[in-house]
Design a protein around this nucleic acid. Structure first.
Lengths: 194, 194
DNA sequence: CGCTGTCTACCATAAGGTAGGTAATTTGAT
DNA sequence: ATCAAATTACCTACCTTATGGTAGACAGCG
């Protein structure tokens, strides 16, 4: 691995991380290429070298987020054996993403701005949701078998409801500016684990 | 009622309505004073006459939204007697606001952009949530008494969870670009009504 | 040499906002 | 009832800064 190549990857990855943070805290329209450049200590034109247009950035952002997030879900599947443990770990992912109301899941943040995004990005956004809901469905299916989650009707319905609940809980925590609101929003969900 | 005064109120109200639509479809950073002006058929400077700065607009927006929304909730209380009927009407409010994924509750849309809003607006946003959750809590309390909603643990927890669920369902419908996702996100909630 | 990653310098447009003017009304004192 | 003063709701014209984006140069490295 050459130094130059290493530096490129580092810079691009750093820009992506910064952009993610900005987008999740302020929304996709809430930061500019100049913000990214300032933060990374390079010039605006250099940011455009890595991401020609903001549309490209949005796509890279959601693709990267999706990849990292699904990796984490797979890791949960690998390390936790009961449905309840998996569900609690899942909720914890959103709890962390919420950062006490300071931040949101990228997916939630981008959904609001959606109309300004290119078709590729909205498709990736939809795919992210599909994948996560699919994973959750398998958790609830397991929960029906191992009995570690109470009152499961339809696993798919439960998966979709859960997704809605954790995303909504993030919004509530943000609106209230208080981490406790996130906990309150998901309490009925957590209360069902055995 | 003089003609001039009538016209002023009309224009201001129209601007507010337009701004609400824009904010809910594109987020608060997704439209400009120029957009509002074009849409209302007046000049940008005239928009500034009604709302000096965008911060003023954000506050007017959320205040108005809160007023209208709470009115609707009170109307539901006045016309529906069972907790289940009230809950279903509440969900319908969010279903309508979702507009098949094209729009969001103003509160959800503004929460994302929150960091760019003045303190007054974020306070009003928090107050909106507080009020709605309070109303929902009373519905679940009634549900415990009249038995029209199943499996109620703590009314306050249920209220917060419900709020999270309907808001999250809107985000999901938007991300999927499909009204059915909203229904899927709230199905477990609706399924509990008797 | 050719590629990578950065730079300076630029550009057009859009953004939020202000200054000052004007026609039509409304108000208030005579 | 009438007339001046104030107010309302709009206008044109302008300003500053930010924004997304491009062109072209240059240093370092394989």
């Amino acid at each position: 691995m050459s130094r130059s190549k290493g530096r490129q990857l580092d810079t691009k990855a750093q820009l992506l991380t910064e952009a993610e943070t900005f987008a999740r805290q302020r929304g996709f329209d809430g930061f500019s290429f100049a913000d990214l450049a300032d933060n990374a200590g390079i010039r605006k034109a250099s940011v455009h070298y890595h991401f020609p247009a903001k549309a490209d950035l949005s796509l890279a952002l959601i693709d990267h987020y999706r990849e990292v997030f699904m990796d984490r879900l797979h890791q949960i599947t690998a390390t936790e054996t009961t449905a309840s443990a998996r569900l609690l770990q899942f909720v914890d992912l959103y709890r962390q993403a919420s950062e006490g109301g300071r931040s949101l899941c990228l997916c939630v943040a981008l959904s609001v701005t959606q109309s300004a995004l290119p078709t590729d990005s909205t498709a990736a956004l939809a795919a992210f949701h599909r994948d996560v809901i699919g994973w959750l469905e398998s958790v609830f299916r397991l929960g029906g078998r191992d009995g570690s989650i109470r009152q499961i009707s339809d696993p798919r319905a439960e998966a979709q409801a859960t997704m809605a609940q954790v995303e909504g809980a993030q919004i509530m925590a943000r609106a209230a500016g208080h981490p406790a609101r996130f906990e309150a929003g998901i309490a009925t969900l957590v209360g069902r684990t055995v």
